[in-house]
Design a binder for these strands. Structure first.
Lengths: 240, 240
DNA sequence: GCGAGTTTCCGTCAATCTGACGGATAGTGG
DNA sequence: CCACTATCCGTCAGATTGACGGAAACTCGC
């Protein structure tokens, strides 16, 4: 802001996506196998450079998400996570990447991207265990951490669910993301009691075996009152 | 990530700081009067472009903070807030700015920056009422929102206080940042009961009039258990 | 048609936490 | 030594939480 114009260094700006979902009773993340160097063949977050000097950053995230998953922004939760810009994170040149956290319901199957990269769902535990391109391991940790925290005091959990869902499905989201068992009865009492969290549709599930469950839709609230706090042990585990 | 090298647009990367403190019973923010176009003479967040193509982003934030306030990073709370990058936010050229939230104790007085810009404290309410350079009004709103939220479930409030402080001083921080009155007795019980929040020094204040207060230091915890939640009304006001 | 199996949902109850208040404590200043 | 002021402690009713038993509602198999 106070430098002369000629001293401003040029930087390449990328947008990366951490797309989370719950599939097969696991927290999973969308990853692509890189088709080009560096890190050719390694797993990486989907993303890419700005398409033009005039492309909006948030717009680039929406575009990349559509390219990789075929999802439109209105169907999901999309928020900026953080910007990563250590000087040596890309061996080619100076790159900073603006990362986004997306939370989507369980999709039938990710489409192959427009490019040669093949996108697929990978359990988060597996992704963090194996090697990943760039600093994407760190980014995934941050994304998961953010999601875990936001379940407590926002209605983010509904973004993991389809348009209509049961209380038990919602509880499974909490349990899987937090890695912690919750009391079904107390959970039911809390979420149905929280203002604007759930709206009953009046419909019931047609299920084999067992009493049909009430179906709910996400309510208008985005903040949870009162909050749904994790156990002490569970949240310490994440920070440690 | 999938584009050819030659298509990558060059972008100028800036770092801006939202430095908050509590002064004179008000939440205040450090602003500079711009010495150059655009927005010459307008108030703006302190910040600047990367010093070189190899400068770390977090490092740039620390450098700017030292230049503007003379503060070292270890004395305060510094975290990334968000990156702002709408295409037309700077009329000169494409600029994206990585913004940081800093929380500092009540400083004697901000030093003039190394440049011609004059830094000074401005009450947040006043800053948001008047016109500001670029999209800095939005950034300040986001910074204040982040700080308000983080007081609930982290120990961020201690970053507003000097090394040793009383429970009443800490309570004033909460009241001023939240804009809400708190019960002194209940607040005392909660904060002294929260694990790792406060460490008693054994010292007492030498004050005129009134019983001397115990002095505390910030404890090792960064997350607050149990959380210190705002009233329903107060947090809705922010989202509205 | 009817019971076994399964899942959702409701009610209870003790332990804990919260909000609200009165009053004791420990200094200063006149 | 008596106001005055501010901190700190105790109490107590109402709300919330965690933990559990059991009723309700449906499917399946016989």
């Amino acid at each position: 802001m106070t430098e002369e114009e000629w001293t401003i260094p040029d930087v390449a700006v990328a947008v990366d996506l951490a797309v989370l979902t719950v599939r097969a009773e696991q927290l999973q993340i969308l990853l692509v196998e890189r088709g080009i160097e560096p890190f050719r063949g390694a797993l990486a977050l989907p993303g890419g450079f700005l398409a033009s000097a005039r492309e909006d950053i948030d717009g680039a995230a929406v575009r990349e998400l559509a390219e990789e998953t075929g999802l439109a922004a209105q169907d999901l939760h999309l928020e900026q996570l953080r910007t990563y810009g250590t000087p040596d994170r890309d061996p080619r040149r100076r790159v900073i990447t603006v990362c986004y956290l997306a939370v989507v319901p369980n999709l039938p199957v990710p489409r192959a991207g427009g490019d040669a990269d093949v996108a697929r769902w990978v359990p988060v535990a597996e992704a963090l265990a194996g090697p990943l391109a760039f600093d994407h391991s760190r980014i995934i940790s941050d994304a998961v951490e953010r999601a875990r925290g936001k379940l407590e005091y926002t209605t983010l959990a509904t973004a993991f669910c389809p348009a209509e869902f049961t209380v038990t499905e919602l509880r499974r989201v909490y349990e899987i993301v937090w890695g912690e068992q919750l009391e079904p009865r107390n959970f039911h009492r809390k979420v149905t009691g929280a203002d604007g969290f759930l709206v009953p549709t009046g419909e019931k599930t047609l299920r084999q075996g067992g009493r049909p469950a009430e179906l709910y839709r996400r309510g208008p609230a985005s903040l949870l009152h009162p909050a749904l706090l994790r156990s002490r042990a569970s949240s310490l585990e994440v920070t440690a």
